[in-house]
Amino acid sequence: MRVDEFLTQVRDRGEYHSQEEAEQVTEAVLWVLASRIVPEEAGELAAQLPAPLDEPLRLERGRPESFDRAEFLRRVAQQTGARPRTAEWDSSAVLSTVADTVSAGQVGQLLDQLPPDWADLFGSTGETATRRHG
């Protein structure tokens, strides 16, 4: 998928006013996600996303931090200047687009590193995540 197609999908899902707003939200969500997953996984995900959207995933962060969904949304809200509820909407718009863009195996590897309650942000059901993690 080309970057303009990716951002159009995020813009439509997030109901943003412009491609620029969709790009800012996408970069913020991916930046926070990259701090939660192992660097190798971030690199594999980056390789499947169109440039320049891969850049937030390629920043050297060291060891991943272990934080829950609420903290993820708090950090996204902090990056975007939004409320946590808006950050959930933003995260879902971006991560469900990521799930539609990258391979199913890549999505599975991501979900394997995250708590089951993150699955819906990627457009997956909790049942799928529970089976994967259970």
Rank of each mutant, 00 (worst) to 15 (best):
P56H: 09
L53K: 10
R131N: 04
E27R: 15
A70Q: 14
Q78P: 00
G62N: 08
L7N: 10
W89L: 07
Q113I: 00
T97M: 06
G62M: 11
S18W: 10
E44W: 06
L30K: 07
V3H: 13
R11Q: 15
E5W: 08
T97W: 06
R131Y: 08
G105P: 01
S66A: 15
A87K: 04
P84L: 09
G62C: 09
R75H: 04
R74E: 15
L57E: 02
R13K: 15
E27I: 11
R36C: 00
L30H: 05
T86Q: 15
G126K: 04
L73F: 07
E71S: 14
L110W: 01
P56L: 10
R75E: 13
E5G: 09
T128N: 00
V102S: 01
R83A: 14
Y16V: 09
V38P: 01
L53H: 09
R74V: 05
T80F: 10
E21K: 14
Q48I: 02
R75A: 04
I37L: 11
V76Y: 06
S18G: 09
D90Y: 14
L110V: 02
R132M: 15
A99P: 03
R131E: 10
D90W: 06
L33K: 03
A22T: 07
L57I: 02
R13P: 05
V98N: 07
E127M: 05
A51N: 08
E23W: 02
T97K: 04
Q19G: 00
I37Q: 01
A99D: 02
R74M: 07
P50T: 01
R69V: 13
A42R: 04
S91Y: 05
L45T: 04
M1D: 05
P50V: 05
R63W: 08
G108T: 14
F122H: 04
G81S: 02
A42H: 04
E127C: 00
R75F: 06
L73K: 06
V76R: 05
R74P: 00
D90T: 01
P116Y: 07
R2T: 14
P84T: 10
E40L: 12
V94C: 11
E40G: 13
G81L: 02
T86C: 00
Y16F: 15
T101A: 09
D12M: 11
W31L: 05
G134Q: 12
D68H: 12
L7A: 11
L45G: 03
S96K: 12
P116C: 02
